[in-house]
């Protein structure tokens, strides 16, 4: 079809190339469908009638649309409070992350930074060798962070990978002429970073903020080992109980009497919960996607 619409007449494709194009588009389309179908199914199931879901009547689009699943979620107190907690960890945590990452990446990007080589080695080595789960747990315990909000924020305050891509971004975008010119005018490093580097770094800040924010939103393991207090639980821990361990107290969300009815509602609740948990991130990320090229690609490839 698109052959006809093409404005410029191109040299006719050879047979092999035409076959290639066909196969290529088929593969890509198949991949898209395989990726999309589960996502669409979950959204459709979450809006369907619970009986229709468990009896396999939902295939692509919602059947007898209802909002029962979502209603059940909002009645579940633990889900609501954990969503609030997750927002807290995400916002405060990301703020810490981004500030610390910039503070690490900018000096490392400067070729005249005294000790840059040593610090870089210190940084990269942590990617290759890890003290292990137990010593880390003992450290957090000794610092008195167990069962506090800090346990989810401070130990994960810096990702080495993000420091490296940010550093490379600075190296590529902030020219040394710019720095020299500013230094001539008597601008010190703090001012230069604040007034000149940061305003030029919106793409990379957007990208690392997204990475960190998603990381916090999706984080469950640290909460699993560091938190016992239910009132501090992030969403993922509650999700784990409901989705994976099937522990859901239906008396909290519905007054359905019959067991079968309860069971069906439980399945429906799970689908709605998946949508609520994954939705915000999936809706957000396309806005940052256009920066991936600028941020990640420059950051990860050069040097």
């Amino acid at each position: 079809m698109h052959h006809i619409k093409r404005p410029k007449q191109r040299i006719k494709e050879s047979r092999g190339d035409a076959a290639f194009t066909w196969i290529n588009y088929s593969i890509l389309l198949t991949m898209v469908l395989i990726t999309l179908y589960p996502l669409i199914y979950i959204v459709s199931a979450s809006f369907s009638d619970s009986q229709a879901v468990v009896s396999g009547k939902v295939w692509l689009w919602p059947v007898q649309p209802t909002l029962d699943g979502y209603e059940a979620i909002f009645k579940h107190k633990l889900i609501v409070s954990s969503v609030m907690n997750s927002f807290y960890y995400m916002i405060v945590g990301t703020l810490f992350n981004v500030v610390l990452t910039l503070m690490a990446a900018y000096p490392l990007s400067r070729r005249d930074f005294y000790g840059a080589k040593l610090f870089m080695v210190l940084l990269v080595f942590t990617m290759m060798f890890d003290g292990g789960l137990i010593p880390r747990y003992l450290l957090v315990k000794d610092l008195g962070m167990l069962d506090t909000r800090w346990a989810l924020i401070i130990p994960a305050a810096l990702s080495v990978w993000n420091v490296i891509i940010t550093r490379t971004y600075f190296r590529v975008t902030i020219s040394s002429e710019l720095l020299e010119a500013a230094q001539m005018d008597g601008c010190n490093d703090f001012r230069f970073l604040w007034k000149i580097v940061l305003p030029l770094s919106a793409p990379i800040i957007a990208v690392i903020s997204l990475f960190y924010a998603v990381g916090h939103w999706n984080q469950y393991f640290n909460a699993l080992i560091y938190l016992k207090d239910q009132s501090l639980y992030p969403l993922q821990i509650v999700l784990k109980d409901i989705l994976v361990q099937n522990k859901v107290d239906m008396s909290m969300v519905a007054d359905a009497v019959e067991i079968a009815e309860k069971d069906a509602l439980r399945q429906l609740l799970k689908y709605s919960l998946i949508v609520v948990a994954a939705g915000p991130v999936l809706v957000l990320y396309p806005f940052v996607q256009k920066h991936f090229v600028k941020g990640v690609m420059i950051g990860s490839l050069k040097e």
Binding site: M31, V32, T35, N218, Y220, L239, I274, V281, Y285
Partner: peptide, 12 residues
């Protein structure tokens, strides 16, 4: 579309 699932959490 193909990037999207990357952002889904392990639990989900």
């Amino acid at each position: 579309i193909t990037y999207a699932p990357h952002f889904i959490s392990t639990v989900v």
